[in-house]
Structures are given as C-alpha cells and as structure tokens.
Amino acid sequence: MEIPRHWRLKKQRYSLQGEICPHCEGKIFPPRDVCPHCGNDARTTFTFSGRGKVYSFTHVTEAPAGFEETAPYTVALVQLEEGPVVTAQLTDVEADEVEIGMPVEMVTRKIRSDGNERGIIIYGYKFRPVLDGAR
C-alpha cells in the first residue's frame, strides 16, 4: 500500500492543479520544484482548464500490474491549452477515433486500485474527446 504517496498528489490528480511561476509566469504541470522556463523556485498553485489537444498517442495492449482490468487502453501526450504537456489515458473513445490534434477535455476517473481490490481506489485525470452538446 502506498497511501501517503497518492494522498499527497490528490489535488494534481483530481483537478490538474499545477503551478504558475511567480517569476516568469510560466505555467507548469506536473508541478516541479524549479521552474523549467526560468530556473527559479516555482510554488504558486494554478489550476489548469483541462482543455487540450492530442500531441501523440499509443494503444497499450500489454498492461502492467494494476491496469489489466482496463486493457487495452489508449495513453496520450496531451498538450494543455496553457502550454504544458501531460501524459494521460484517453477515455470514452474508440481506438480508431483517436488522432493527433484531436481536442480533448479532462475528466476525473478511476485510475487503478492501490495494490488489489482491497486497497484504496486512486482517482485522477483522464481526457476524452470534447463533448460540446447543444450548447
């Protein structure tokens, strides 16, 4: 069980909480101790909109322990509209519908269990094709 490790990251995982650099205003996700843009300490929280585009993707068929139940699944590099790129699963989409450049939005989903079915459920960000509806 790795409860503290997952608990500590819940804000990032549930709602894409990253950082904005107080020195150069660079937006950072995942959070880092040092701003990759200007090299200063980065500590001011910033919540990302969750909108982005697929930069690349792959369909994983050989899943590691903890992910067997949902395999095969699609993992993508998603470029957020604020700039940073995040690695995340795509959900609610068929494999053959995914393409580079596809607009996607963040949803909070089950990622996996910590250990087996007796462990805590870890929730976190995934992305799905933007649902526009009738708006």
């Binding site: 792959t58 994983v60 050989e62 993992v75 690695t87 699963q89 990622i111």
Partner: peptide
C-alpha cells in the same frame, strides 16, 4: 501512474 509502459513511451 497513468498506465504508461516502456513500450508505450516508444509507441508515443
């Protein structure tokens, strides 16, 4: 943590 594998990195 999101299910990426070494092969997945190469696939991307």
């Amino acid at each position: 943590m999101v299910g990426l594998t070494l092969a997945g990195q190469a696939g991307l």
